[in-house]
Design a protein around this nucleic acid. Structure first.
Lengths: 113, 113
DNA sequence: ATTTTGTATGAGCATATACTCATATACTTG
DNA sequence: CAAGTATATGAGTATATGCTCATACAAAAT
């Protein structure tokens, strides 16, 4: 995106859609709960504190976006992170926010702004 | 986010908000237009093909999120990318999408799925 | 076959936000 | 000061999407 030719409208929509999928706290919580490996829906409901219906919908959204993968075993369905760039994306954003917050704290402490 | 302790609800909101800011095609177009350096609003309106009002709003959103920085010079206002992680984020997502698309193309070509 | 357990989904509501039009504000120039 | 130019914003509308309740579906157990 930097030195490459500008993206087409279609590509921009895809990139935006990608970011949109990550733009929900509950979905981030699910991703976080899956960093250590796959879990079934019931476990994810417990880990996140959401309702079963809502978690199921978010899992569908994440799976449709190829962020998560699905494996069915009997009654249970196990989800896992299937896109290796997801952890990197989250780390980048977290790091950036930490910096931004400490900068802000420093400014407040110095009475600036 | 991976080996670190799980994020607080507040932190999750911030991360989600960050992704949300990047989840609009027009804002991505603006970011793209700023990869080569700062530009004023009129230039950005021309580069993106949007209306002045809409571009102004998106610039405000991006600036409030500390993605862009603002510099006023006389009548004009110049915007620039102020968060160095933005290009990396976009590259990560683009790369991931390219892979995903070529995989899909390969599957279609092989008659799989 | 019926019941139980785990997961998905249809329908409806509430909220957020992208967009536009018109107008306001800020600065410059005549 | 008046007029012009660059940017921002209030108000209104349309659309998307997150959430919930109830129920459907699928597989297992009795």
């Amino acid at each position: 995106m930097s030195k490459h030719s500008p993206l087409t409208d279609e590509a921009l929509e895809l990139v935006a859609r990608r970011f949109a999928v990550l733009a929900e706290p509950m979905r981030l919580r699910l991703i976080q709960a899956l960093f250590d490996g796959e879990r079934n829906v019931t476990e994810l409901v417990e880990a996140t504190g959401g309702t079963q219906a809502n978690i199921s919908r978010h899992l569908q959204t994440l799976t449709a976006a190829h962020v998560l993968g699905r494996r069915k075993d009997g009654l249970q369905v196990f989800y896992r992170i299937s896109d290796p760039t997801i952890p990197k994306l989250c780390e980048l954003v977290c790091g950036s926010l930490e910096k931004s917050l400490t900068r802000q704290a420093a400014h407040l402490g110095a009475g600036e702004q």
